[in-house]
Design a protein around this nucleic acid. Sequence first.
RNA 1: GGUGCCGUAGCCAAGUGGUAAGGCAGAGGUCUGCAAAACCUCUAUUCGGCGGUUCGAAUCCGCCCGGCACCUCCA
Length: 504
Amino acid sequence: MTLRLYNTLTHRLEEFVPLAPPRVTLYTCGPTVWNYAHIGNFRTFVFEDVLRRYLAYAGYAVEHVMNLTDVDDRTIGAAARAGVRLAAHTAPFADAFFEDCRYLRIAPAAQYPRATRFVPQMVDLVQRLLDRGVAYRGDDGSVYFGIDKFPAYGRLSQVDRRELKAGARVSSDEYDKADARDFVLWKAAKPEDEAVGAAWDAPFGRGRPGWHLECSAMAQALLGETMDIHAGGVDLIFPHHEDEIAQSEAATGKPLARFWLHAEFLQIAGTKMSKRYGNIVTARDLREDGWDAAAIRTLFCSTQYRKQLQFTDDALRAAATGAARLAEFRARLASAPPGGGGGLPALARALEAAFGAAMDDDLDAPRALAALMDFVRDANRELDQEGGAAPASRDAALAAFDRVAEVLQVVPAPSAAVSITATSAPGAGSGAAAVAGEDPVPPAAGEDVAAWAERLARIRFAARGRKDWPRADRARTLLQEHGFEVRDTKEGVQVVPRRQVPGA
RNA sequence: GGUGCCGUAGCCAAGUGGUAAGGCAGAGGUCUGCAAAACCUCUAUUCGGCGGUUCGAAUCCGCCCGGCACCUCCA
């Protein structure tokens, strides 16, 4: 297996080889904790999660660092409006972010450095750049990076230096720079900054870090001068990552990152999701609506990360249906009766081969998902024909399925609710007899729903045994009304929570 | 104006020179008392348009049309 990734720095697909295998250092730009992150933000974070999970699947030891930006124009502005200190404003949103990550099954990074806790490192970096003469102090007391001192400037974003001058927003620049293209490293403290506690002392003047500075300082402090992969959203290519490269490499003389990966935007109604456009959907909105994170991740996996993704209710619903199919299959396979299933090990090998080939090709998740769907169909057919699977075959199939599912995280979590099979087997026999003449009734107030559902399953099973269809149907109708699905099998009556497709 | 990405069935989407994966939705069928789940069959003579290269193009080249994003603090 050879993993190839599209490197924004070189503008082509490259074979991924870490600097010091099996270790892979990964730095990803995290959220600005001024508000709740929206699912557009999370599309990128989920992509990064799939990336690191796949690297782990491929045998690498990933060291992942994700920063939290807790000081910038927006956090300061929001704190000022709320009349609280900066940290008081950002802390709840940082907590909310971690909560959302857990919901979306994003594996925790090894470290989540926050900008405000790395101010000394940032001050050091600015001082080094001043000492080297690539940074200068403006008349306003801020410190700027002079891009004419860094010839490689513009390599990542391919923005021609002359065109940059004609940039659309340059005229709105509010700072005192020698050249419009220069960017701020350290912003001189303003009263608004002081008011919320967003100002620090430095040899070159009291102030606060510019946007890009934190990533350069924290990445170097935690991962060293050169990391294997730096990832983020496409919007960060310019200026954020371009500027990170300039300030880091001007200070160290070494490449900041060997691979630069950028995820395309999630779109809603044809445009990017942004607070500016007021078309925000947050992770907590989706959670409150009852969506399983697997549905969201399935939707995200249905488009390769370098392509724009359309987020619509229909698409999410379709993804949820597909994800439910995976959970359905997982449960069926795990509880397959022994015997047969000789074809499963070969299917399992084919799954992992196809999955690896797809993911190796610049993390082609749609193809990887298709491989999983192929496997599910083929294995279901095998189970249909064989009526079961020998433990060794079953376990081989289960292991492959789980390894793949571990990377994508597209299988809905097993429900905490009941999954009951009422049978006439010994032990259940007495129960079946006891309910034989019972009429199905709705659960009593305060009654345990699981126990109630099990009793109705027994009632239906007994009724079916007597061909008492009206009673059997009443039991099923009641169960359906209470969110359960009823399946009659050779083994008995199975009652499972109805798969979750909100709004369907 | 500059830079980049993209346009494949009702919808999502893979495929980047050898004759159109997969999913969702829909139709029919097997199974079932009826269902559900699962499986089977069907649903693009065609890949935004027009030219060109080639034995052969969704795939390469040119032009055109359409969409999206970035161009100083947006993932």
